[in-house]
């Protein structure tokens, strides 16, 4: 665990960044806030001779919401800026909440949402709400761009579909429908400041008859990647909200989880908490959609 030595490059444009990636392809990493990367380099879990920083790439830190296109988060958008952004708070409260409670003040001021996704920890706090909001990521390489749905982005702990020479340029989230509610709850069994042992996000809207539609549920920290809960979603889709149905859906969420025992919690406890949090998340989504308090 010697002190790592590397060269940091500070390109001003995305093109330059892509060039640098290509030039140093043998041993290169992208650097955003560095809150994951530097720890891994120091701890010896990762090594690189070159770091290509995204921090001076122009225009990358944009946070932009439009009623037609929805939300665009540039790869440079800091977690704390996303948490504080009025449009995010208004239209994507579960994401704003995740960004305001995860990690610590210092980490949120440096870390980016894109870095959180690209790092692909099973516990990534922004992943579950972004899954619930149907987010996707825009990936760019020298040959061109592609857009990938977030649920297809994660491949395993620390693994994504990102190609080695590819940059996650932006995160896109569609406009949520009216009469919608969303929520994200996370818990650590230890401290207020901790990696989540379990996180659950939910989204639902109500149609004119008061039936639930567009239901999405997603969990973090309970499987090798953040996961959706398709069985629970299907149970609720098109149904009238009923406490017993919601409770059964919460139980169904547990079946989407494949948790392990680790330092933070046992699989057993995690499973039990998926049910508890999913139940609470659904309650909250519903009361928001019904016009209750947020």
């Amino acid at each position: 665990m010697a002190t790592p030595h590397f060269t940091v490059h500070q390109p001003a444009t995305l093109e330059e960044a892509l060039d640098l990636l290509g030039r140093h392809r043998a041993s290169v990493k992208l650097l955003a806030g560095g809150t994951d990367l530097i720890m891994k380099l120091r701890g010896g879990a990762m090594s690189a001779d070159h770091l290509v920083s995204l921090n001076r790439v122009g225009g990358l830190n944009r946070i932009n919401y439009q009623d037609e296109d929805g939300l665009v988060l540039g790869a440079g958008a800091r977690i704390s800026d996303v948490a504080a952004h009025p449009d995010v708070r208004k239209h994507y409260p579960a994401l704003a909440h995740a960004c305001s409670v995860m990690a610590t003040t210092q980490i949120r001021n440096m870390g980016t949402v894109a870095g959180n996704l690209a790092n692909a920890a099973p516990s990534a706090d922004t992943a579950a709400p972004l899954l619930a909001y149907r987010g996707s990521v825009v990936l760019v390489e020298r040959g061109g761009r592609r857009q990938v749905k977030l649920e297809e982005f994660f491949k395993g702990p620390g693994l994504t579909v990102l190609e080695p020479m590819e940059i996650l340029e932006a995160i896109r989230v569609p406009v949520p429908p009216g009469r919608a509610g969303s929520s994200y709850l996370r818990l650590s069994a230890r401290s207020q400041v901790d990696i989540a042992a379990v996180g659950v996000a939910g989204f639902l809207a109500l149609d004119l008859d008061g039936c639930m539609m567009g239901v999405r549920l997603a969990c973090a920290s309970v499987a090798p990647t953040p996961v959706r809960c398709p069985e629970a979603e299907a149970m609720l889709e098109g149904q009238r909200p009923d406490p017993r149905l919601l409770a059964r859906a919460a139980v169904a969420c547990v079946r989407a989880a494949r948790p392990i025992d680790d330092l933070r919690a046992t699989a057993n406890y995690r499973r039990a908490m998926v049910q508890v949090l999913a139940g609470r998340v659904l309650q909250k989504c519903l009361s928001m959609a019904q016009g209750g308090a947020q």
């Binding site: 610590t104 230890r190 401290s191 207020q192 901790d194 330092l263 933070r264």
Partner: peptide, 16 residues
């Protein structure tokens, strides 16, 4: 000992 960082060995923070 498996938890050898302050991320894994939890002491209370100011928030707690």
């Amino acid at each position: 000992t498996l938890n050898t960082t302050f991320l894994d060995y939890k002491i209370a923070t100011a928030q707690d």
